[in-house]
Design a binder for these strands. Structure first.
Lengths: 221, 221
DNA sequence: TCTCATCGACTGAGCGCTCGGTCTGTGTTA
DNA sequence: TAACACAGACCGAGCGCTCAGTCGATGAGA
């Protein structure tokens, strides 16, 4: 991960300042775009001068990396939290609860999720892997959970990876497509509807019966 | 829609040049980012000088609008094509075929879809509405199709809007998340799997039965 | 000859970042 | 105790560079 320069040797102060930079810069960048806000404006939004800002970072671009690091940490915390809360629950309840948790995290940290999705093209390709890696861990978590459900006979046999990926996509849609979704749904409504969609597919996948038998399946219902 | 300046009165030539600009600029901007490529590099990629480029556009930003316009036109053509092909088909077949068609369009014009999704934050808010509007039309199309299926009793009663929106989200995921999806799936596989997921939910939505009755439903299956 | 398409050197505005300077707090010495 | 030196946090004007866009020159075609 990229090393960000600071002139301060006070680690606590550096962390404190940088957390503040991450928070405010994310808001501003999401609102206006990374390239539509200059360092003077950023510094002003932070309540500092540019010199003060450069006491803690080495370049404007460093801010992007601070934010990405913060978001990756969030992802790790999410996974730890899911693992802590899943003990003693059925596969389906685990899945339902962790979907709700993840959607809430996406809502609470919407700016960071939006940020990462949109800033990706500004990064060198090798640095995009940091982001990919963090997100792949979430996909892996859900894939394993779904695969366990399939092994236990709770879910129908199907492509667990794609089902897991769809959960991430739906969560990101909430963060990215507020222009449409928030006109029509609350987070709770959206979460419930999407959880239902995911579970209805997991419980009874028509793929098992092949496409040509779709009509017979319907008659048996 | 934004008026783009040209010094030429030869409409055919302007269109020809601009289509070329749209095509090449989209590739370059997607590959490198709008703000990471300057007008000289763009002109060079186009096989022109900057002066030649500015004969057909008024500003670098105009290129964004040309591309957005092109993408909106694509969307209109997609909808016309769906409408032409749906005559005499059942709701389910219409839905299945139009999903496949839309996914193929997203694949064929992946650069434009990526472009619009990522460039949104560079636009003034009022101009984002152009993009929102084009995409809302696709959502409306699917919502109406699903609502017809519900009215005919082919699909279970549910939120047609969200189901329609999910189709768009899944198609965009193919365009935007190739880093993950293309490692595991061909377009055909992805289309079939997602169509199954969508249809399994439409045919049998557990929401109608409420969450508390999930187990009894399963036993009846 | 005139018109139009194209070129590329040039312009000036704006950018990220630096660096000389100020201010404040702390420690040392007389 | 007071004065001074020092370190570190912070400031903001200015620098060098890059950028988008211009404009006079040139060549081609009618």
């Amino acid at each position: 991960m990229r090393k960000v320069r600071t002139f301060s040797s006070d680690t606590d102060l550096v962390n404190q300042r940088r957390n503040h930079i991450v928070k405010i810069a994310t808001e501003q960048i999401i609102k206006r775009g990374y390239n539509n806000i200059n360092t003077r404006e950023l510094a002003s939004a932070l309540g500092m001068s540019t010199g003060g800002l450069y006491h803690y970072i080495g370049s404007k671009e460093d801010i992007l990396y601070l934010i990405i690091n913060f978001t990756s940490d969030l992802t790790c915390q999410s996974l730890s939290r899911f693992a802590d809360e899943e003990k003693g629950k059925s596969c389906e309840d685990k899945l339902r609860d962790s979907i709700r948790n993840y959607f809430e995290i996406v809502e609470n940290y919407r700016d960071f999720h939006n940020f990462v999705n949109h800033i990706m093209l500004s990064l060198p390709v090798k640095d995009r892997k940091i982001v990919y890696k963090a997100e792949s861990r979430v996909i892996d978590y859900y894939e394993e959970l779904i695969a366990d459900g399939i092994a236990e006979g709770v879910f129908e046999a199907q492509d667990a990876r794609l089902a897991a990926h769809n959960i991430i996509v739906m969560a990101n849609a909430w963060a990215n497509r507020g222009w449409f979704l928030k006109k029509h749904y609350t987070l709770r409504e959206y979460t419930d509807e999407q959880t239902d969609a995911i579970l209805s597919h997991l419980r009874r996948s028509p793929k098992k019966n092949g496409h040509k038998q779709l009509q017979p399946v319907k008659q048996k219902a």
